[in-house]
């Protein structure tokens, strides 16, 4: 990519395939792929297995493209934070141009493949998700406002909508509620993390809520968003869009989420060493989303499997 010449150039930069893989943020990708798959499985229409696999692959590739372009744009602030300083660009293992080409290429390819393999509505939502994450979140909001992850969270909320659209060719109330669920889950999830890595964000000059408004105001907002998120989590069952399995899972896990958020609200410490409630909420929030989306998919499939 950055060189195809017969002799090695003067620049020592030669990224290995592992660096390209690292650019795609594979850790976060698991959740993106899982929520996309759950949206697809919850849909009333079934895709051919090869096309379903391709749709999920496209969601994964699009996530990789957005993550790569995010790191291409943010390599300066990534270099200032302990958590991100060892990424391929700030660590100097790859040049920026290579990352840009990789990100744009992967993004265009994922959208075209989605359109050709499934339908163009799913491809259009996929393109919107990439552009939203890169242009609205990374370029526009992240360095300007503490509401960055509130609005930017929408980018991560698209996968269930894309999975559903790939299977059915349209958008309905259930995938929209799943979109709203991830959208409202993102602030408590990220603010819990930013409370205990606050020094990193402050050093990089990123206006996270914890840096601008302080821990106390952030903890209050975590509680408020958790309440709204719990209401949306239960809504698919209350509206009769899912069965009792999902309803029970949503009620029990949302109650635990709210209890942990209350623990965060009660904590008064500013020191990361004393932020056990925040760490607990952060870790549980990941399990919460996995379990809820697993329940959505199981709820749609279980009656058919039991009847067979």
């Amino acid at each position: 990519m950055n060189t195809t010449t017969a002799t090695a150039p003067a620049s020592p930069i030669a990224a290995d395939w592992r660096d390209f893989y690292a650019l795609t943020k594979p850790g976060v990708m698991k959740l993106v792929v899982f929520t996309g798959l759950a949206g697809m499985l919850a849909a009333p229409a079934q895709l051919h297995p090869v096309l379903a696999f391709t749709a999920i692959l496209c969601i994964a590739l699009a996530h990789g493209a957005a993550a790569t372009l995010n790191q291409w744009y943010e390599s300066d602030i990534d270099a200032l934070m302990k958590r991100t300083a060892n990424r391929p660009l700030p660590a100097g293992r790859m040049d920026r141009e290579t990352a840009l080409h990789f990100g744009v290429g992967l993004g265009v390819f994922s959208v075209l493949l989605m359109g050709l393999a499934t339908n163009w509505l799913a491809a259009a939502i996929l393109a919107t998700a990439i552009l939203f994450y890169v242009l609205v979140y990374t370029v526009w909001l992240k360095r300007r406002t503490p509401q960055n992850i509130v609005i930017g969270g929408a980018a991560g909320a698209f996968p269930p909508l894309i999975g559903w659209a790939a299977a059915t060719g349209d958008v309905a109330a259930l995938p929209l509620l799943l979109f709203a669920l991830i959208f409202l889950w993102t602030p408590p999830h990220f603010w819990a993390l930013s409370l205990f890595v606050n020094a990193d964000y402050a050093r990089a000059g990123v206006p996270m809520m914890t840096v601008v408004a302080g821990p106390r105001a952030t903890r209050r907002r975590i509680m408020l968003y958790s309440l709204a998120m719990a209401a949306v989590a239960v809504a698919p069952w209350a509206l009769g869009l899912t069965g009792a399995l999902y309803g029970l899972t949503a009620i029990v896990l949302s109650a635990v989420f709210l209890a942990l958020a209350a623990g965060v609200l009660a904590n008064r410490s500013d020191r990361p060493a004393h932020m056990k409630p925040e760490k607990r909420l952060f870790l549980f929030s990941i399990l919460y989303l996995f379990a809820l989306f697993g329940a959505v998919a199981l709820d749609a499939w279980l009656p058919g499997m039991l009847a067979a």
């Binding site: 090695a8 020592p12 030669a14 290995d16 395939w17 390209f20």
Partner: peptide, 18 residues
């Protein structure tokens, strides 16, 4: 580039091509 650096460079280039 030293011979060692060039060797590392080539190995990385090869792994990418593969």
């Amino acid at each position: 580039m030293t011979p060692e650096e060039e060797d590392i460079y080539r190995r990385k280039q090869k792994s990418r091509a593969l």
